[in-house]
Design a protein around this nucleic acid. Structure first.
Lengths: 197, 197
DNA sequence: TCCATATGCCAACGACTGTTGACAAATGCA
DNA sequence: TGCATTTGTCAACAGTCGTTGGCATATGGA
């Protein structure tokens, strides 16, 4: 048992490393150029390996993309925070996510491809349904949670589009504090404002 | 003279008609599948014509896309409208644009491709700089116009993404009145709110 | 040391892409 | 009626794509 697990580890440790290299290269290129724009040959070149290996480790480009497009927002539980600071908390977490290489890359991958790749679009709707919406349901009437979460997502996805993908100059130039001060109140109102539903 | 002008018209009317058919098919498919997803062969098939003709009428796929991605928002001059109704006016016009086949298709073409096609991204930034920003500059301090217009664009592009491209169910379900009532105040604040800049 | 297995490269496949040039039919003018 | 120009089709080009199978090499246990 002991040596078997050791063997298992050593046997796979080499392949796991190249596997990770491929995945990292794939995440980088999918985030930069989208699903169609990033070819398997490009990914292989970035990982310094033969294109055939990419298919051997991940069975197809679709499967590689699915592995690369994993997103866990780790959103804070809004129940426990100050009810008057929901908007600012959300927008702060949003900036953290997008400007941290690990999570930001994942979101960029999805958003870049969601407009022309149905799988990515479905995955993005999943993130909304399983990570954003439940969070809103915890602080607002669950009957309105969908609508409220939808409005919040529209503002956040739009901000991400303009700032990180489209790179609209005035939006890129905004500081964190400016964004928090301007977008925070919008999210606050969408989340719990009484004039919204 | 009579029949000559008729002939002249007929000479060009034939080619102009197929030209228009090709352009219409291209707009439809670019809006639906994006730049990469719509092939020249697809466009030709939709226009019931040979692929070679598409290249003959428009010199290349890039040029065809450029012709298809023309957008004129025809935004109202905000100077003349009620200063307290700027937000509602903007969001009303937004809904008109996107749900009218002619203009909505143009915006869909740009937005679908902007995430993975640099030309489309640049074109979208142009729409912002030449159509949205000057409009905001007319009602707010021109020094803040860029930032204000950027925030407005982030909300509007995000809404378009969620409602028309991503088709996020709760956002699709919103009625026009609900959107006007919820998003209008956001835009109003971004446009002229004193706590924004 | 020998052998099985894991890891990797190479060449090629079939499909699809944008684009081109040669050739056929239609059209309009003399 | 002839002739020239327009309008269109067809086949093929060169390139890229995802994917596959065969073959070399390296690794690690017996």
């Amino acid at each position: 048992m002991d040596f078997m697990s050791e063997n298992q580890q050593k046997k796979t440790s080499k392949s796991d490393r190249t596997r990770a290299q491929i995945l990292e290269a794939a995440r980088l290129l999918f985030a930069k150029h989208g699903y169609d724009g990033a070819s398997i040959r490009d990914v292989a070149a970035h990982a310094s390996i033969d294109p055939a290996m990419v298919i051997r480790y991940f069975r197809s480009k679709d499967e590689l993309f699915a592995r690369a497009a994993v997103v866990d927002l780790k959103l804070p539980a809004l129940r426990v925070i100050d009810r008057t600071a929901i908007g600012k908390t959300l927008i702060r977490r949003f900036l953290e996510i997008w400007e941290d290489p690990a999570n930001g890359t994942g979101m960029a991958i999805l958003l870049r491809s969601a407009t022309s790749n149905e799988f990515a679009a479905e995955k993005l709707r999943d993130v909304f349904a399983n990570q954003v919406r439940p969070l809103v349901a915890a602080v607002a009437d669950p009957a309105d949670a969908g609508r409220r979460a939808g409005l919040i997502s529209s503002q956040l996805l739009g901000l991400a589009m303009c700032r990180y993908l489209l790179r609209l100059p005035p939006v890129v130039a905004l500081s964190h504090d400016e964004i928090i001060q301007t977008v925070g109140p919008t999210l606050q109102r969408y989340a719990v404002g009484e004039d919204v539903p």
